[in-house]
């Protein structure tokens, strides 16, 4: 039974409340409108440039380095296997500090830039010392 006398009580307050809610909820969007940070440029060290190829191809590394590292840490710690042989038959010591950061010794320009941009905060660095080269 359709009723015609449905009335919105306190119309003004309700609408004002809704407007305030919508504005607040969308605040991050319009506040940052037109201010999007440009994607960061990653810098390669000379060594990384010279090597040309990473453990896997660049696209794979860009998209899946986290899965790769996750697999690495599991196999090194749990399976006592420490060598990764890629599809080009090249072997690498599966070590974030000693392999990855050996080439990419510029963590700030390489790792952090992108991580900051995408607002991810991996806790790898809590333990894996970020620049083994500083040793000695």
């Amino acid at each position: 039974m359709p009723s015609n006398n449905q009335k919105l009580y306190d119309k003004d307050k309700v609408i004002a409340g809704l407007v305030i809610f919508v504005v607040l909820a969308t605040f991050p969007f319009w506040y940052n409108l037109g201010k999007a940070a440009s994607a960061p440029e990653l810098e390669l060290t000379d060594k990384a440039k010279a090597a040309e190829k990473c453990v896997r191809d660049t696209q794979y590394m860009r998209n899946e380095h986290m899965q790769l590292l996750d697999e690495w840490r599991d196999t090194v710690v749990r399976d006592a296997k420490r060598i990764y042989v890629n599809e080009r038959n090249m072997g690498y010591d599966m070590s974030l500090s000693n392999t990855c950061l050996d080439c990419h010794s510029n963590k700030e320009q390489f790792c952090d830039r992108c991580h900051n941009y995408t607002s991810v905060n991996p806790y790898c660095w809590d333990c894996h010392i970020d620049n083994p080269k500083e040793a000695k």
Partner: peptide, 23 residues
């Protein structure tokens, strides 16, 4: 690993691409 591989890369890339493996 990297240095030696770099110097002998030609040898290595002759191989047909294989699935990456762990050992």
């Amino acid at each position: 690993v990297l240095d030696v591989f770099a110097s002998s890369e030609e040898d290595a890339v002759v191989e047909a691409p294989a699935e990456p493996r762990i050992m």
